[in-house]
Write a protein that binds this DNA or RNA. Structure first.
Length: 200
DNA sequence: TCTCAGATTAACT
DNA sequence: GTTAATCTGAGAC
């Protein structure tokens, strides 16, 4: 059965509302005939009125996607070595995005292992730069519309287990130096693939 | 557990 | 021209 992307209006809300809803969703990446797929277990929200966000100092050629349409990929290069993947999300704010920080590999694992040069499952995508490497994401996908079927999109989990609801926990964001009091990082409690161990 | 190299982008002096 | 940034992996202690 086909996996359908989440609709655009899913992203037309405040990033701090979209971020927790993305947990448990699937990132689908199609490359060279292979389909790579992972479950989102960790996200962070970045708003427009947010001193920790790239948008805090206005629009630049790098961050212009965050001011554009909701549901698009915002990919940037950090520290000269690593890419990070965001999805733009905004409601009535001028800009915003959700950083995808960690995935749990679901399918195409062998390809991810090859791309990463690692075999341990929790090591494949347990960090923002790791998951872009595992999914072969680079700037060629900058601004890509993630609400349409294609090389990169986000889909709802096909079978939603009728068991207990997902345990979501909000924590301070990681790797930033400002606005650390905002609990805008969201994790799936108990996942083996978080970028940091969760103090339960 | 801690520190540090790696090397692009863009703001700031 | 200098510095800091949504980070990872390796090596020192």
């Amino acid at each position: 059965m086909p996996v359908l992307p989440l609709p655009k209006n899913f992203y037309q809300r405040h990033p701090a509302a979209v971020a927790p809803d993305l947990l448990g969703k699937l990132v689908v990446r199609q490359v060279n005939g292979a389909t790579l797929c992972g479950r989102i277990v960790e996200t962070e929200a970045y708003g427009s009125d947010d001193p920790a966000s790239h948008t805090a100092r206005g629009m630049t050629p790098r961050n212009k996607a965050m001011f554009g349409e909701a549901g698009c990929a915002y990919i940037y290069f950090i520290h000269g070595l690593h890419y990070c993947l965001n999805v733009t999300a905004r409601g009535d704010t001028p800009a915003g995005a959700v950083l995808i920080r960690a995935l749990e590999p679901v399918s195409g694992v062998a390809t991810m292992q090859k791309l990463r040069g690692r075999t341990s499952l929790p090591e494949l995508a347990s960090g923002p730069a790791k998951l872009t490497q595992a999914l072969a994401i680079d700037k060629s996908l900058y601004g890509h519309d993630m609400t349409l079927p294609g090389p990169l999109f986000i889909a709802a989990e096909p079978e939603r287990p009728a068991g207990p609801p997902l345990a979501v926990k909000a924590t301070p964001r990681i790797g930033i130096s400002r606005a650390t009091d905002l609990l805008w990082r969201f994790v799936l409690v108990g996942s083996e693939c978080l970028s940091k161990k969760q103090p339960v």
